[in-house]
Structures are given as C-alpha cells and as structure tokens.
Write a protein that binds this DNA or RNA. Structure first.
Length: 909
RNA sequence: GGGCGGUUAGCUCAGCGGUAGAGCGACGGUUUUACACGCCGUUGGUCGGGGGUUCGAUCCCCUCACCGCCCA
C-alpha cells in the first residue's frame, strides 16, 4: 500500500542513488540501436559557485529535454562540468588564506599557490554539481569535465598556438580595462557600468602667456571633468572646431596647474559644446576617448598611476620629461605622490581651490565602469596584452545564424547577437593572474616572442631563430576563463584528440542558456567551433528568461532577495520546483517566482500520488498486453483518446521549446481530465460487487493511463514518477522491465469522435445539474430525481449507459424518461436534450424563470452578433469559406438551443 | 541619446487576425471512504490611451503614455 502522502525528502535521495546505480544517465543509456545522437553541453557553472535560481531554471529545462529524448530512444549525452573561474577562484583561495592568517600568495610563490587552488578545488569544487544532482539533473556525471583538466588544457594550448600562427591572436599595446584591486586586465564584457552620484568639476586652466586672473575669463579656459585626479596626466585641452567661443584659442597652450606642463589646445569633434564648458581636458593614458583624441592630435601619453591606482609621478621619467621642478611642482610631488587615486583627488581639489582654479562644482550623476569581480572602478591603463582578432572570427559566426544553420529561440535574440557581433572589438584574453591556463608564449633576450605548444618547442624555435640555444622566459599571464569555455562543446568530448565522442556527439543539438551570456559565451563558442571544427557547435540556442523575485526585482545578494532553490526543494520537493519553473518558462518573459505557485504544483504532485493510491486501492494493475484501442466502454475509449492527444501535445511543445505549454497540457490532462472526470466515472464500475468484463477493462485502462501519465510527467517530475513507476508494480507483485528513466515514451494513440461526443454530453449534463442545484438552493446532500423529456434513441442509450455515473456525480435519486416536462421543474438544455429537475414546492419558480430568461438573452445576443456578421455582404464575400460556415453552424446551434430554452420558459407559465 | 522588450481578470501570467483563458486569490457550499495540498459552484476583463489597415484587431501598422533591460 502506498503511503498516505508522497515524502519527497526521503524518496529523492533513494531515487537518485538508484539512477546512479543503474547508470541511467550515461551517454547512450536506453538508446534504440542505431539511434541518432542528442547532445547538450551544460553551461559550465563557476567552480566557486553555488546553485541559484538561474541555474535551477537552466538545468531543469535541459533536463526536461534530455529526459524526454532519452525516453524516445535517442542516444543522449548531457555533458556536465564546471569552469575554473580564474579571478573568482583566485579570490576565494586568497581570502581563505588571509582568514587563516597564512602568508599571501606572493610570499609563497606561484607554484605553491596554484597547488593550494587545486587543493581547494578538490575539497570544495564539487558543491554545485552536488546541488545539481539534487535537482535531478540527469547529466552523464561519469564524464564530468573541468576547464583546467589536462585534456581541456591541451585544447586551449592548441587553439592559442594555431590562432597565433594564423595571425588571429596577437600582442598589442592598448588601453585596457584595468582592475586596480585585482591587478589584472579584464575584457569589455567584465566591466559593469554603475551609476554614481559624483560631481562635474569646472577647472580653470591658465592660458600660456597671460597672467592668470580668476576675474578675467580671457586669462584661462574652463574644462569640466568628473575625474580631476587624472589632470596630472593631461597632455591637451580639446574644443569643438566650430565652437566660436574657443576658435581664437586653438593652437595656443595652457599651463597645466600644479604641474607646469605646457599643453596645447586642440580642435577635435569629440568635445561636445553642449556639455560642461565645451572644453575638455585630454588624458590619453587614462581615458578611452581621450586616447583616441590624443592619437588624432599627436598628444603625449603620460601614465601617472601605478597598477594599484596610486599616483606615480615623482620617479616617473615620462611625467617629468620637459618639466622644471619649481616650488609648485615640488609641492605637488610631495603632497600627491603615492596617494591612492581617490585620496589624490581630494588633495588635488584642495590645491586647486587654494589657487582659485575651481570655477564651480556641479553635482553630476554618471556611469562609472566597475570590475564585475573586484567591484572597484576600473582604470583605463596602457599595457601590453594578448588579443583575439574577434572581428575576423565573427564573420562566419554571423553567417551561420543569418543562413539558419544555428537558430535562436526565441528568434528575437538573433538581433542582439548580430548587433554585438557586427560591432565586435578585439578581445583582450590575457589576465595578470596565476590561476588559469598560462599563455604558451616565451620571450627571448631581445623580447622576440615564441608561441609554441611546449617549452621544448619554444626552445627549439629560439635556437633556430638565434642560431644558438637561447634561454627564454615564459609569459607570466594566463588566459581569460571564457577562452577555455569557448572550446567547451568539443574540448569536453576529447578534442584535440580524434575521439569517438567528438565524431558522435559534435555538433550538439541545443544550447540552453540565459541571455546574459550570449556575448560572453554563445558568440565565442560559435567563433571557435566554426574555426576549429568547421561546423557550428549547436543547432539551436534556446534563450530562457531571468528568474526574478515576486515583485520582479532581479535577485541579488546585496538586495537580500535571493531565494535558494535548495530551500524550495527542501520545502516543496524538487519535482514541484521543477514543474513550477517549466510551467512559468514562457518564451520571452522573465519569471517572477512566487512560493504560492510552487505550493500549487506541490499540490499537483500530491494529486498524482493520490490518483495512484486510488488505482491501487481499486485493483488497477497494469495488464501488459492491454490495447486501449480495443476497449469497449465509452469512458475507457474516451480517456485513451484524450491521453493520446495529450501525449502528442506535450511532445510537440517540448520539441518547440514551449515548456509552459507542455507543462500546462500535462497538468490539465492529469488533474482536470483524468482525476476530475475519468476516475469519477470509473468509481461506480470499480466499486460494484463481483467481477465483470467492464470492471476488468476499467481497471486495466486506469492502470494504463496512469503509466502513460508517469511517462508523460517524468521529464518534468522525475522523482515522484520514478517512485510511482516502481511502487505501482511492486504493490501488485510485478516488476518493471526497466526504470522509468529509460522506458520508452508513450505510443501514438487513436481517435474516436463518437466517444468524445458522448462523454462531452455527459460532462455537460452533470455540470449543468450541479450548477442548477446550487442556483436553486437544493441542499447539497439531498438526492433529487432527474427526468429527461422525450429523448431520442441515442440519448436514451447514453442515459442507460451512464445512469450510475449521473446518479453519483450529480446526486440524482432516480432517472426517468417522460414525454412531457413536469410542472414546476428546473429545466436544463443539453444540446438537443431537455432534462428536468422536478422540484415542485422546492424551487422558486420566479428564480427559475429569471435563470432561463437570462440564458435566453445571452443566446439572443450571440445570435444577433452572428447575424450582424452574416448580414454584412463584405464578410460573406471576403472572409474565408470555413469561417463563414463556422458562423452559420454556430448560429444554427444557438437557434436550436434558444427554441428549447424558450419552450422551457413557456412551460413555467 | 541609440536599441530591445513589456503594458490582458485583484495578483502572477498564457493567448497573438474570427470579440478572451489558466493558476493563485476572493465569495458561497461541502468531512460523498484517493486526495481539505481535496471536492462542487460562483464572481471577475471597453486585452494601457488614440489613430490606421482589414469584412473583422487583444493580435498587424503608426502614435502617445508609463514600466523594464541592454548599449553609449
């Protein structure tokens, strides 16, 4: 006997273990011989991460696809793994070392530090994969990969070296986004714009050759800036060429306050006459726009900061070049040198103020770039870094989507993809970190670079180049983590080795991910897949929504509105959470998650459980050769047809990534069709004494539908369905040939319109009787007679067939057939049939009259509406034939019904 | 400033050329032996405003308003 309720907490671990023991998730498990492959690579979560709602949604959807295709007999591989998350992981380990008061990484050296990171990974790196298992994610865990694995690292090396040899990776000196906290370059994508309430400082820069007088605007030019501390590195002032206020100054110099450098006033369209004063200071070493302006106008590039973002001028030859160290500059050097950039800002402003060089201070809200990991404002910084020529690699990747070889679902995301890909910038891939793939570049004594797969090959190349064996030093830097993630769809399958898995499982079937990493990851996989495999890495890209809190706010730690999916699993069960996410995963809209909704789907799981209990209690045991199409009883034929229809709907919806439609169709069938109606119809048969053919058929049908439902729901609710699959057999003393996870998806079914008509009539009848009972205030417990007025042969047969059901579900004491409607009764029109509830002395005749009159009016309105349409010659002429016909038929139905209701009303007198 | 998306029942959302659906809530009833995480019934919407195309518009086009997100 099944337990009274489904206990997710105790069942889930047991089922997980059983799947594991059966090897049910292994690549190809349960596949038909010769089946086509179905591959998904997991978006590798960050190894330092723990499961959040986004992961829960992302992996639930993938698991639905994977379980569905596995059950259909495809050769399924769901490839799991994690990425090494260079910066994040290095930070985690450094923080841990600090907490333990251990010497920092520089003190212990690179090798020892990297060892510590590996040790950390061995101990804590499995957190998120274990959490995914709790969700039921049916990845082939035996194939789990990590971007720093030996094999994946070889893939990285090969890609780097090959791209370098093709000229698609190169070293360049450019301004990069520098994180002064983490001391590394980061890519454009890792920069987040944060709105900051700052100031716009209007500074007076004295014109060379004039005696500065704060009262006399002709002696200075006002520049507006949000970052006054960078003024130390100013090498020009730009004004718009057509800005008449400044034309006379173009070509003149200003004397840079606090420093004394003569810097030119140049004309450049970058300067916006509408903004600030219309004149802007140019600091090419510390601003991306200024860098371009400087380049156009031949301005010097003077870096005035250290990598930590502190002022570095006292021993800075480039800064001091051409300067005379007078008392003013001496004061500046003493006061500002080595100060952090924000402290330097305060001091510089104070010094400018003291010299009356600040014209005004305007509060100014603007976007300030921050490093997404370090969280501090990034500093544009001039350094040598490695770059990927993304523009070249992007071209075939754009074509793939344009020409439909890879499709985004929903299609709207293709626009986003194109927009970014068509304006793509060189990708800075070097990072000044220790944790990651060290760049395979070695430098000779003269700085000549050798990029090879190994040190030995580099040395050999150097010997050839220099004509003698030459010592080399390896580039210290590592690669952006996304560089290795870009190879994920083939590196995880064993590439660059020529493995059977690469041949079989590449390209993958679909990539499931959130829109936030289209740029970071999807685009880069497209580029690398095309370049190295010659084929797009995936056929479809399904972009799902973001999970938000109930109010629609993005979940974030700082807002404190993060819901831990595992808390929900604990409270409602993994199945309920999964079903909720699937049901809410409508394309193109974010998910506002509310616990009420999850509770609702937990109730659904309970409903399913109870239906199985009911079946069990009534001896509904699976009959192995049961053939639904051969069923005799109408209700059995009907439910089999409804079930088959649902199977089809759900399958088509999953194929189209319409998860909410799939979940909705399954839900409605199980609850509203199977439980609310079929099982109720079955009760009189199942609960009659003795055995009958009908009882046996109903038992077999119930068991069969239940099995179909378990299969249908398994991709969404794997735990409860797997549990019931085993339990329903066990209780009957049977054993299933296979676990549900590898059992074949449901078979195509039959149609039977006659059965559907009959059951729809029955449902309408019962619903109407119930409704009238309530309206007429018939006490719920009382049984009342039902009288059919002159039914035809078909209806008579239906009445005879379903008498017991009608009596039970509509609480009817007796059913009779008469030629004329009894007086003072409530009358119900079902199609062409009139049925009466003779309630002489019970019903309120006026109320009944009102009820019928209301219905009559409704019918008249409908008919009027259709008449208006059909009376419109343009409609009849232009609308499609079937629409016109449909309206005629509908009108005919309404007219007939109106006649019946009208008669009923007249009978009341 | 540029781009994208949204605005449908009290709430959360489906639908997207033939005048609207679900879940939750609300209200009323119900301990009928699968299930009160249940059952039965009821209520509830000029589909953001305006204009256009069409025989017909929640659905297509234009426009306005408000709300998000991304990029400057």
């Amino acid at each position: 006997m099944l337990e009274k309720t489904f206990d997710a907490a105790s069942v889930e671990p047991r089922i997980s273990e059983a799947w594991d023991e059966a090897g049910a998730f292994r690549a190809g498990a349960g596949a038909e011989p010769g089946a086509a492959p179905y591959t998904i690579v997991i978006p590798p979560p960050n190894v330092t991460g723990s499961l959040h709602m986004g992961h829960a949604l992302n992996n639930t959807l993938q698991d639905i696809l994977v379980r569905f295709e596995r059950m259909r007999g495809r050769d399924v591989l769901w490839q799991p793994g994690t990425d090494h998350a260079g910066i994040a992981t290095q930070m985690v380990v450094e923080r841990q070392m600090a907490e333990r008061q251990e010497p920092n990484r520089r003190a212990i050296g690179r090798e020892a530090f990297v060892e510590k990171v590996w040790a950390w990974k061995a101990e804590s790196g499995g957190t998120i994969t274990n959490q995914l298992k709790r969700l039921g994610a049916s990845c082939d865990w035996s194939r789990e990969r990590f971007t720093m694995d030996e094999g994946l690292s070889r893939a990285v090396l090969k890609v780097f070296v090959d791209l370098h040899k093709k000229g698609l990776i190169y070293r360049d000196k450019r301004l990069v986004n520098w994180d002064p906290k983490l001391l590394t370059a980061i890519s454009d994508l890792e920069v987040q714009q944060v709105e900051i309430k700052g100031n716009l400082w209007h500074l007076r820069y004295p014109i060379e050759g004039k005696r500065f007088d704060a009262e006399d605007p002709s002696t200075f030019i006002v520049v507006a800036t949000t970052r006054p501390e960078t003024m130390l590195g100013d090498t020009g002032v730009a004004v718009h060429p057509e800005d008449e206020r400044y034309t006379h100054l173009i070509g003149k110099n200003v004397v840079l306050p606090l420093v004394g450098r003569r810097i030119p006033i140049v004309a450049d369209e970058y300067s916006d006459p509408e903004k600030g004063s219309g004149a802007v200071k140019i600091t090419p070493a510390h601003d991306f726009n200024d860098f371009e302006v400087g380049r156009r106008n031949n301005l010097r590039v003077i870096n005035v900061m250290t990598v930590e973002g502190a002022i570095d001028i006292a021993n800075n030859a480039e800064f001091l070049k051409g300067l005379v160290v007078d008392t003013e500059l001496q004061e500046t050097l003493v006061s500002i040198e080595a100060r952090d950039r924000f402290e330097a800002r305060k001091r510089i402003l104070a010094m400018l103020e003291a010299r009356n060089l600040i014209e005004k201070i305007e509060p100014h809200t603007h976007m300030v770039p921050h490093g997404d990991r370090g969280g501090v404002p990034i500093e544009p910084f001039l350094t040598d870094q490695w770059y990927v020529d993304a523009a070249t690699l992007a071209k075939p990747a754009i074509a793939s989507v344009r020409e439909g070889r890879t499709t985004f679902v929903p299609k709207a995301w293709e626009k986003t993809y194109f927009q970014w890909m068509e304006n793509i910038q060189p990708w800075c891939i070097s990072r000044q970190l220790w944790w990651g793939h060290q760049i395979p570049a070695w430098y000779g004594p003269d700085g000549h670079v050798f990029v090879e797969l190994s040190e030995a090959e580099a040395l050999a190349a150097a010997a050839a180049h220099y004509g003698a064996p030459t010592a080399l030093t390896r580039d210290e830097d590592v690669l952006d983590t996304w560089f290795s993630s870009a190879l994920w769809p083939f590196s995880t399958l064993g590439w660059p080795d020529d493995t059977a898995e690469v041949k079989r499982y590449y390209p993958t079937s679909v990539l499931v991910t959130g829109f936030d990493i289209i740029f970071f990851w999807v685009a880069r996989m497209m580029m690398m897949g095309l370049e190295f495999m010659g084929t797009e890495p995936f056929k479809d890209v399904y972009i799902h929504a973001l999970v938000r809190d109930e109010k629609g706010a993005k979940m974030s730690k700082s807002k404190g509105n993060v819901i831990d999916p595992l808390d929900l699993v604990d409270e409602y069960g993994a199945d309920a959470l999964r079903f909720t996410l699937a049901a809410m995963a409508a394309q193109g809209r974010d998910i506002k998650l509310s616990t009420q909704r999850i509770a609702g789907y937990r109730n659904f799981a309970t409903k399913l459980w109870n239906a199985a209990r009911f079946a069990e209690m009534n001896g509904c045991v699976y009959v192995s050769d049961f053939e639904p199409a051969a069923a005799v009883d109408t209700v059995n034929r009907w439910i089999a047809v409804e079930c088959a229809r649902t199977v089809k709907t759900v399958a088509e919806a999953i194929e189209a990534y319409r998860f909410n439609d799939a979940a909705g169709a399954a839900y409605r069938f199980v609850w509203n069709t199977f439980c609310d109606w079929y099982l109720e119809f079955a009760k009189p048969v199942l609960q009659q004494d003795g055995d009958s053919k009908s009882k046996a058929e109903t038992r077999a049908t119930t068991a069969w539908v239940l099995d179909e439902v378990l299969k249908l729901l398994h991709p969404f609710m794997p735990f409860i369905t797997e549990e019931l699959w085993a339990a329903t057999a066990r209780e009957a003393g049977l054993k299933r040939p296979a676990m549900l996870v590898t059992t074949r998806w449901s078979t195509p079914g039959t149609t039977d319109d006659a059965a559907a008509d009959e059951i729809n009539w029955l449902v309408d009848l019962i619903t109407e009787v119930r409704s009238v009972r309530v309206e007429m205030n018939v006490p719920p417990a009382s049984q009342i007679p039902l009288v059919f007025v002159a039914p035809d042969a078909v209806i008579r047969a239906r009445i005879a067939t379903h008498e017991a059901v009608i009596a039970r579900l509509a609480r009817i004491s007796s059913i009779a057939v008469v030629e004329a409607a009894p007086k003072a009764s409530a009358q119900i029109v079902i199609g062409e049939t009139v049925a009466c509830l003779p309630l002489e002395g019970v019903i309120d005749v006026d109320a009944e009259r009102g009820r019928l009159a209301k219905e009559l009016k409704k019918l008249a309105d409908e008919i009027g509406r259709i008449d208006a349409k059909l009376g419109n010659p343009a409609f009849v002429a232009k609308a499609p034939e079937e629409v016109v016909e449909e309206n005629r038929e509908k009108r005919e139905e309404y007219v007939q019904r109106r006649a019946k209701v009208d008669e009923a009303l007249k009978r009341l007198g």
